[in-house]
Nucleic acid binder design. Structure first.
Lengths: 347, 347
DNA sequence: TCAAGATCGTGAATCGATTCACGGCGTTTC
DNA sequence: GAAACGCCGTGAATCGATTCACGATCTTGA
């Protein structure tokens, strides 16, 4: 309203290809080619078009673009709980890789709710994302399969390729569980508890724990405690119930399904007077940043979340295959202070 | 390929309004009205249309919808660093509120890079988000103002409405800083350091700290250490440089710009042999979940991130005004173990 | 019984970027 | 010098959902 003919930038309506074309004195097709196939247009015109676009603050309308080409530049990332640093890291890794290829990540936080998960999957479809990264949220939702049939590929992140045949990349969770339990057994711990939620990757961790116990030369007991969600709050609650046990029923080693849970357990146990690691050794899983800052720095299994996120993006973009990642995300035991050094480790 | 004519769900192409209309035996317009203005169509037809949509797995194409109506159902959230739990919490709060109104949040993680910030803002514009929540990332980017002029509103989250005139909601950072420093002064701490990055909200926290020092009846020294990013890693590095100081130059109280930084400082100081809180008191800011699990549980200022996120969404959706939030996000001192109880607190 | 009005379904235009098919113009080669 | 070819710009069709304006059907009251 106020501005004369000179500055067009501040105009209310967004500039369209038509506006740019008019200003550059070319057709709309030329403007489009300038952006999608720069070599198709001569350098001279290209410059003119780009200048006009710049002056008008042209941004393009992805809706129109998508309507025509059928898919968006975005990739969807579905996680169960963004306040778990593991997922934040996964998202950061995916995002950085996506940005490097001019792509974007849409993050959906299902908060462990299947309903929201479904809603977000629909949202992804309505957004025509060109692919979906799904971090484990229980079973593979049927919607995901439907999406694939309708042309949107997905990659499961953090779930080992198992009996299912879905594309998936993951660290070796079974081996991680095995490492954790072996570490405890090597210290002479014999009354172990595994505490974890019902996620496929957690089940694998448990399988590894079981295998370590089964292979142990000395007999050892393993108890399994199932919880709903693996949060610090739940960890504290479990610690309180544990504290009510008699000395004979009390464990001397715990493997937690993830670090968040372990941190809560640790806090609850210490508040309850348990000495860690003297009375009980604790091993977490993931090696989140805060594991090192805990009241007693947490022994845990390192899990390369950011690298997984980046790889998943490359796979969806067709720059890498599942097989290429083979053996690239090996879990690793990080011994800190919630467990005793293993007898052989006293170097 | 394998399926006969019976099940249509698994067909490759996504169903369109046209398909639904054909199946329900109505026009495309009717299908559209069924979803956008359900009362416009009679109950009978509505049922038929919904059934047909369900059978076909109809999801709708948001690109087409947006192209027509001009804006999307998504809101953009711009944060500087998603691995800071504060932002994860903010995102979760915003997301939950958005979901309650059938909206979605697009999260953009700029990683403190102005270039990526700009790229994401362009992305938001190309996505025609109906509004943007921007968590402080330094100055207000000029692009944000441009977006507003072109019709996309924004709300700054966590930045107090100051000399600028942008819509903003925030806890009272100045008061939080004041609380933190007052707490230290009340314990008899006299050689304070404030450590923080160059964010507008951190500057406010610092202003509060300065005011507390100025108002102190006993003279107290305040040193200011500026850092680039407020992460735990940087905190540890700062701790190491602090440890090289002579006893006289060593502080007896520290206010950190956020909890991540405080956690890193704490760890670095304790590893270096400093006793907390005996030798030095430390106060963080934000009260992230891990503050309570730290090697010495962290005294901090609580900051209602999730509530801020939810409010920002309501404001963008026009359900609430900036003024309504007045006084709703008051900071609160949470005394844990990194500081001495104040003399008067021995209840 | 009939006119006036309310209810509700429909055809067609529309949003903006992309891309196909066409053709004008300049260059090369015998 | 003319035919053949390649380069590059353009008009027009297209993607799918929304919404306007119209009209068909049904309801209601005198």
């Amino acid at each position: 309203m106020t501005s004369g003919p000179a500055p067009k930038k501040a105009d209310a309506a967004a500039a369209t290809v038509g506006d740019v074309a008019a200003r550059a004195g070319v057709s709309r097709a030329t403007v489009s080619y300038t952006f999608t196939q720069p070599n198709r247009v001569s350098p001279d015109l290209r410059r003119r078009v780009l200048a006009a676009a710049d002056e008008l603050g042209y941004v393009g309308n992805d809706a129109a673009r998508r309507l025509r080409v059928g898919h968006s530049l975005a990739l969807g990332l579905l996680v169960s709980n963004m306040s778990n640093p593991v997922y934040a890291e996964l998202a950061a890794g995916a995002e950085a890789e996506a940005a490097a290829h001019g792509r974007f990540i849409l993050v959906a936080n299902s908060d462990e709710s299947p309903a929201r998960e479904r809603a977000y999957l629909n949202f992804f479809e309505s957004q025509q994302v060109s692919g979906i990264l799904a971090a484990p949220v229980g079973d593979v939702p049927a919607e995901l399969l439907g999406l694939r049939e309708r042309g949107t590929p997905f990659v499961l992140v953090g779930v080992a390729p198992g009996p299912h045949s879905y594309p998936a990349i993951s660290g070796d969770n079974e081996r991680g569980g095995y490492l954790a339990a072996s570490h405890l057994l090597a210290q002479g711990r014999r009354r172990l508890i595994f505490i974890g939620g019902a996620h496929p990757h957690v089940d694998l961790r448990l399988a590894g724990v079981k295998r370590a116990v089964a292979e142990s030369p000395e007999p050892a007991a393993l108890e399994i405690i199932r919880i709903e969600v693996q949060t610090a709050k739940v960890g504290e609650a479990v610690a309180r119930t544990l504290l009510r046990r008699s000395a004979t029923g009390f464990p001397d080693g715990i493997v937690a399904g993830n670090d968040l849970l372990a941190l809560g357990l640790l806090h609850g146990l210490i508040v309850g007077g348990i000495r860690v690691p003297e009375d009980l050794s604790l091993v977490g899983y993931d090696d989140i940043e805060f594991a090192d800052f805990a009241i007693v720095p947490l022994t845990t299994i390192r899990h390369p979340s950011a690298a997984l996120g980046a790889s998943a993006v490359r796979i969806l973009l067709g720059m890498e295959s599942e097989q290429d990642t083979e053996g690239r995300f090996e879990p690793e035991l990080v011994v800190r202070a919630t467990s005793l050094p293993a007898p052989g480790d006293d170097a």
